[in-house]
Amino acid sequence: MNILLACNAGMSTSLLVQKMRQEAEAQGLDATIEAKPLNKALESVADFDILMLGPQISYAKAEAEQFADGKPVLVIPMSDYGRMNAKGIIAEAVAALEA
Rank of each mutant, 00 (worst) to 15 (best):
M1D: 07
M1I: 11
M1W: 12
L5S: 04
C7Q: 05
C7L: 07
C7G: 06
A9K: 08
M11C: 04
M11V: 14
T13H: 08
S14G: 15
S14D: 05
L15E: 04
L15N: 08
L15Q: 09
L16V: 05
V17E: 03
V17T: 03
V17Q: 03
Q22P: 00
E23P: 06
E25Y: 08
A26Q: 14
Q27S: 11
L29C: 07
D30I: 12
I33H: 04
I33C: 04
P37R: 14
P37G: 10
L38Q: 04
A41D: 10
A41L: 10
L42V: 09
S44E: 15
D47I: 03
D47Q: 15
F48C: 00
I50G: 06
I50Y: 08
L51V: 04
M52G: 00
M52S: 06
L53D: 08
L53E: 07
L53N: 11
I57Q: 07
S58Q: 15
S58V: 05
S58H: 14
A60G: 02
A60F: 07
K61D: 04
K61T: 06
A62Q: 13
E65C: 05
Q66C: 00
Q66M: 12
Q66V: 08
D69H: 15
D69T: 10
D69A: 15
G70C: 10
V73S: 03
L74C: 09
L74V: 12
I76S: 01
P77I: 07
P77H: 08
M78W: 04
S79Q: 14
D80F: 08
Y81N: 01
G82N: 03
M84G: 08
K87W: 00
I89Q: 01
I90A: 01
A93N: 08
A93E: 03
A93D: 04
V94H: 06
A95M: 05
A95H: 08
A95N: 09
A95T: 13
L97S: 05
A99P: 02
